[in-house]
Every structure is written in C-alpha cells, then in structure tokens.
C-alpha cells in the first residue's frame, strides 16, 4: 500500500503544473526509500523530465511494496484543482491498484474531499543518464532566468547561452533584431538566493529551443533558484530543488548543420 501525505497540496499542484505541458502520460514509480520518482520524455523527444520526490517531501510516507502508477497528468491536474493550496493532500493506492485515491483535508474546517483517479498502463522508454562532468554550472535566481526565457521567446525561436569565467550571456537573434543579457557572478549575503554563481571548467556556447525553455521555467514556482549545467554538444540540465528531492529537465541542444 502507498500512503503519501503532503503538508500542502500546493507542492504537488506546482509540480504537475510544471510538467503537464511537456508530458501528458507518465509513470509514477513509488518505493519506500526513494519516495516517488518520474522519468518522462516529451513527444518530440527533445526534453526529458526527471522528478524525485523523496520521502522528505511528505509529512508522512509509506510504501510497503514498489508500485508503478500510470497517470494522465491532464486528469490529475483537474482533480488537483479541486483542493485548496493549503490543504493536506494524501495519495493512497492499494497494492496492484487500478485507481489512485486523492484526499484533500482542510486544516481549519472539518472538510474532507476524496477523488478517485483511474490509472493507466503506460509503456515508456527509460533512459540511463549517468552523472557526467559538466563544462559549466550556473546557479541563479529562477525568476531572472524565467524572465529571460519568456522575453526572448517573443524575439526568436532559439536562445544562446554563452558562458565564460567572468559571465553568462543569454542571446537571441530574430527577425526584428537581436538582444542579449549578461550576468556576472556575485554573492548576495543578505539574500543568498539572489546570488549568481558560475563554475566553469571550459567555456561553452550552446543554443536551445525557446519553446522548451519556456516550458522549463514553469517550474520557477517551485524554487527561487535554478542550477543550469552545460556541456559542449550535450543536453543541458536545468534543476529546481524541491524541499527534498528535485525536478530536473534535460534539454537537447541545437547545432549548426
């Protein structure tokens, strides 16, 4: 049996809102030690989502035996809208389930809402992603990165990320002209999440689809910082930390033909 209780429904709501425009169907893998993990690739095979909700994400978590919950995220999203952000949210599944029970409890009123979501058999390819050495790692406020991704999408289909030891530069070239934003590393002692940290082994210059970056920055609601790991001619990793665990996006770059 699975029983996972979130202190606030808003955490799962934000996570599902961050991924459901990229993937519609995915398997939630549940286990006692790892909590709930998800790996899913978007239909265009450009973006991969790796989610890890450790048991620490939950106020209470038990999973007596490993199980896989095949979920339609659009349907799950409809049910999650029924609860309030502050509610307790509990996911309950029996062994070999054909449905997932979702329970909202209002903390102040004696109100309990229960929903049952039908599960699906989902065939999905799982990719092995080894921890590799990256050429660069940037940690910056997620709001800043989100603004760049949203603003530059109106100018160009692509966004270039150029990292040197001294700076990270975001650059877009489109029909109407071009633009760039440069950030230099700095440490904000009063507000550490406002700091910008650049670790560089080798400079990189990579280009990504603006559409996918716009999907990725939907997760900015989950964490005030984002870590971007870049390696020449390889997929980039965009990571948002959860209270315990992470939401990662792996995005294939664009190359010149």
């Amino acid at each position: 049996m699975l029983e996972g209780k979130f202190d606030q429904a808003s955490l799962l709501k934000k996570i599902i809102d961050s991924i459901r425009d990229s993937v519609k169907l995915c398997n939630f893998n549940c286990s006692q030690n790892d909590g709930i993990t998800v790996q899913a690739i978007d239909d265009s095979r450009v973006l991969l989502i790796a989610l890890k909700m450790d048991p620490g994400c939950f106020q209470e978590f038990r999973c007596d035996r490993d199980m896989v919950l095949g979920l339609d995220l659009e349907s799950l999203g409809k049910i999650l809208k029924q609860g309030n952000n502050e509610d307790y949210l509990t996911l309950i599944a029996e062994d070999n389930p054909d449905s997932l029970l979702i329970v909202f409890e209002d903390k102040k009123k004696d109100r309990i809402s229960e929903f049952s979501l039908k599960l699906m058999d989902i065939d999905s390819d799982v990719l092995t992603i080894d921890d590799m050495d990256n050429d660069c790692s940037i940690t910056m406020p997620s709001a800043d990165f989100s603004k760049i991704a949203r603003d530059f999408k109106t100018m160009s289909e692509s966004l270039q990320i150029i990292v040197t030891k001294e700076s990270v530069k975001f650059k877009a070239e489109g029909q109407i002209g071009s633009g760039s934003v440069i950030f230099k590393p700095h440490t904000d002692l009063d507000n550490p999440d406002e700091s910008i940290k650049i670790d560089m082994n080798q400079p990189v210059n990579l280009t990504f689809g603006a559409k996918y970056l716009n999907d990725i920055v939907k997760a900015s609601t989950l964490s005030s910082t984002i870590t971007i790991k870049l390696t020449d001619k390889a997929p980039a990793l965009f990571e948002f930390k959860l209270p315990s665990g992470y939401l990662r996006y792996y995005l294939a770059p664009k190359f010149e033909d």
Partner: peptide, 14 residues
C-alpha cells in the same frame, strides 16, 4: 539555422 537534436540519441535505453 541550427537544427534541433533528438535527446534520445545522447543516452542509452535502460
């Protein structure tokens, strides 16, 4: 114009 790569080509199926 740069060409979009397929992510799956970078990794192996588990």
């Amino acid at each position: 114009t740069p060409i979009q790569n397929d992510l799956v080509e970078f990794y192996t199926m588990a």
